[in-house]
Write a protein that binds this DNA or RNA. Structure first.
Lengths: 132, 132
DNA sequence: CTGCATCCGCTTAGATACTG
DNA sequence: CAGTATCTAAGCGGATGCAG
């Protein structure tokens, strides 16, 4: 299957681009993890402080139980969120960002800054485009 | 940031969190724009240099004509990509990042750095989680 | 309280064929 | 070369009911 049928691009260029292509690929993986509908909101919420399940549900408007559970599971699986179960009745489960999760939060804030800085430009571009 | 020392949810806390909630919301908008399956790869590709349609199709493995068109339209609509049509036969259309698009690229690179730096941690966390 | 199981509609995106 | 149009399959996510 893997036949070298793409000699169109020069070898040197290919090598030089390899690192960045790889990075692009990795970023896709990252975006696949945090780019879904709810992960970012949950991470941002947990960035404020650790929360319980129901607190999170209240804090993230519009999220369903099902999606909150799924989102937390995914984040926990990726080592971004720590889940702590207290063996009491009624059940109590605390969620908090891990150190890895906090480094992500920092990076995400950079994206937030970009968003806040340029959202107006994008909205304007959109309006102009849609006007045609 | 939060001068309020009480962790209870009150009006002041709500106000103080409004800015960050808003930022979270904005980032969701941004992620809705660039967080799809192909936008980032296309932006990264255009970050190297301007490209023609078919060149991009070759440069982004796996993308279909349909999705490349849709992705480029979206990026153009948001003012991130400039589309230049040359009235010649056969048709020639060049795509390039706008200055706004380049600022995004810079931010995306920050995310790339994070990805490259922590992807191993995530993979490890995943493996450990899946082992259970 | 904190989930899991099920059903189901909607959106997304891949494949394919066609056009200027 | 650079798209558009149509069909279809897969997956996301919402609502609801049940359980430990």
């Amino acid at each position: 299957m893997t036949a070298d049928t793409h000699p169109s691009i020069g070898d040197r260029t290919h090598e030089l681009m390899a690192a960045r292509d790889d990075a692009t690929c990795r970023v896709r993986e990252i975006l696949d993890r945090v780019g879904d509908k709810w992960s970012l909101a949950v991470v941002a919420e947990l960035g404020k402080e650790g929360r319980r399940f129901t607190e999170l549900k209240r804090a993230v408007p519009g999220i369903s139980q099902r999606m909150l559970t799924a989102t937390l599971r995914g984040l926990e699986r990726d080592g971004l969120v720590l889940r702590t179960v207290h063996p009491v009745v009624p059940p109590r489960v605390d969620y908090a960002l891990t150190s890895l999760g906090r480094t992500l939060l920092t990076t995400v804030w950079a994206l937030m800054d970009w968003a806040l800085e340029h959202i107006d430009d994008i909205d304007r571009a959109r309006s102009e485009y849609d006007a045609r």
